[in-house]
Structures are given as structure tokens and as C-alpha cells.
């Protein structure tokens, strides 16, 4: 894990990550970032920059410095152990011929 970085812009506005919900029923998806002096302006800028063509019905903005990310160096211990547990997937199991709705 890496600690949140200090705000990266010493002489500008902080960086914000933008997430857009394209329509109801879908989760918010990361679309990019932008600069804004504060959260309220970040939301408004996100609306103008990332939803000019009706791409969204809801927006999140998160200070980039607030995001904790897993490190690619730890990719193996983090994610490899999940790869050998085939029994978590339904295709692991044999279903006798003729049995339905299972």
C-alpha cells in the first residue's frame, strides 16, 4: 500500500479524479481527472468537461491524493492466490445430464 501522495500541484489547483454514472443501474466509472480549487468546483468542472454529450446522470469527484492504490510490485501476493480457486466458479462443478435450473 502506498500512503496518499501530497497534493501534486504546488502552484496550481489540486487534482481530482472523476467518476461518471452513465445511466441508472450502472456503477460510477473512472473517466479521467481535472483541476479545481475545491470539491464544489470540481463537480461543476467535471460536468462541463466529461458530460458535454449527455454521458452521465451522476458524478463523483475524489481528491487524487485521497486514493490508496495497490502497488504493481505487490500484484503477485495480492492477486495470484485467487487464481487457483477454481471451485469459486460454477463451471467447476459437474451437473448430471438432464438436470435443469441449476
Amino acid at each position: 500500500m502506498s500512503a496518499p501522495a501530497a497534493p501534486r500541484t504546488p502552484h496550481g489547483w489540486p487534482l481530482w479524479e472523476v467518476f461518471v454514472r452513465a445511466r441508472r443501474g450502472l456503477s460510477h466509472q473512472h473517466v479521467g481527472s481535472l483541476h479545481a480549487p475545491d470539491g464544489e468546483m470540481a463537480l461543476r468542472n467535471a460536468r462541463d468537461v466529461y458530460t458535454r454529450r449527455g454521458e452521465g446522470v451522476s458524478l463523483w469527484v475524489v481528491p487524487s491524493s485521497a486514493i490508496l492504490a495497490s502497488s504493481p510490485d505487490e500484484q503477485d501476493p495480492f492477486f495470484d492466490p485467487a487464481l487457483d480457486k477454481a471451485y469459486r466458479h460454477p463451471t467447476f462443478y459437474e451437473v448430471p445430464e438432464g438436470v435443469e435450473h441449476l
Partner: peptide, 11 residues
């Protein structure tokens, strides 16, 4: 004053 604002004023 900021590129984001070019877009906002344009909108």
C-alpha cells in the same frame, strides 16, 4: 483563467 473555464463559459 483556466482551461476548465473556457469550457464552462462555452457551455
Amino acid at each position: 483563467p483556466q482551461i476548465e473555464e473556457d469550457i464552462a463559459l462555452g457551455n
